[in-house]
């Protein structure tokens, strides 16, 4: 893969969970590159480390061995403050449980990450939030609270929030786990669109539908990552 297109590079990533009695290997010497404008799907059996891998990719788990580079810059050794900055600038995370603030309207949820981004002018925050919600098809629902939205709509708000600071990397951990098939399709279509718009989209999912949208499929098996031919 040409170096200039590589956004994320993982080198010899190994992750163990340590408890009182055991040292449990989760990821074993994984080396892989991820590029922009691609939709990556990671599949595998439950409990085999997919979420762990995506947490490492999202820099919310920094306890691992190996090197993690973004745009060629090592990020695994950064302190918490710098890691937070990298997350703000480069990573948008989407969870299975949406994690929207129930006391904030859709637009207010999308504004939350913008408050700490000095590159977004205060005057343009609101219009940007509306634009993002429009992009995910929720322009008419900007003033609704999460409890007034369907599961699919809530997940789309979460997608808009993840895009608030225009990150290069979109990570989604079972984004359709709580959705019906109609909404599932809508969410994957959104994520595919994001990859076409230039983002590096990495999705962990059990869903068979996800394979239809993915450009590249990896399987996590026996602590290692293998590419699956589509």
């Amino acid at each position: 893969m040409e170096k200039e297109k590589v956004l994320i590079r993982l080198e010899h990533i190994t992750k163990n969970y340590v408890n009182k009695h055991h040292n449990i290997l989760v990821l074993d010497n994984i080396s892989i590159d991820f590029s922009k404008q691609k939709f990556y799907l990671i599949i595998g059996h439950s409990g085999n480390g997919k979420s762990t891998l995506i947490n490492i990719l999202g820099l919310i788990d920094s306890k691992f061995e190996g090197n993690y580079l973004i745009y060629g810059n090592e990020v695994s050794t950064l302190n918490n403050k710098d890691l937070a900055k990298i997350r703000m600038q480069h990573v948008g995370f989407i969870f299975q449980d949406f994690y929207l603030d129930p006391y904030l309207k859709a637009i207010e949820n999308v504004l939350v990450p913008m408050y700490i981004n000095e590159n977004i002018l205060k005057e343009s925050r609101k219009s940007k939030a509306i634009e993002l919600l429009d992009k995910v098809g929720l322009k008419e629902r900007i003033n609704h609270f999460p409890r007034e939205l369907s599961g699919g709509e809530q997940q789309r708000v979460a997608i808009a929030r993840a895009l608030a600071n225009d990150p290069d990397i979109i990570l989604a951990d079972e984004p359709t786990g709580n959705l019906d098939s109609t909404n599932e399709k809508m969410v994957f279509e959104q994520l595919k669109k994001l990859s076409k718009d230039g983002k590096c989209v990495i999705v962990v999912s059990h869903s068979d539908l996800a394979k239809k949208y993915a450009d590249v499929v990896y399987e996590l098996d026996d602590h290692k990552l293998y590419e699956v031919k589509k």
Binding site: I60, A84, F93, P113
Partner: peptide
């Protein structure tokens, strides 16, 4: 506390 987790995921550091 989960909200604190989300804020940190979104890029809020401890001070923020």
């Amino acid at each position: 506390s989960w909200k604190i987790g989300i804020l940190k995921t979104l890029g809020y550091n401890q001070m923020k």
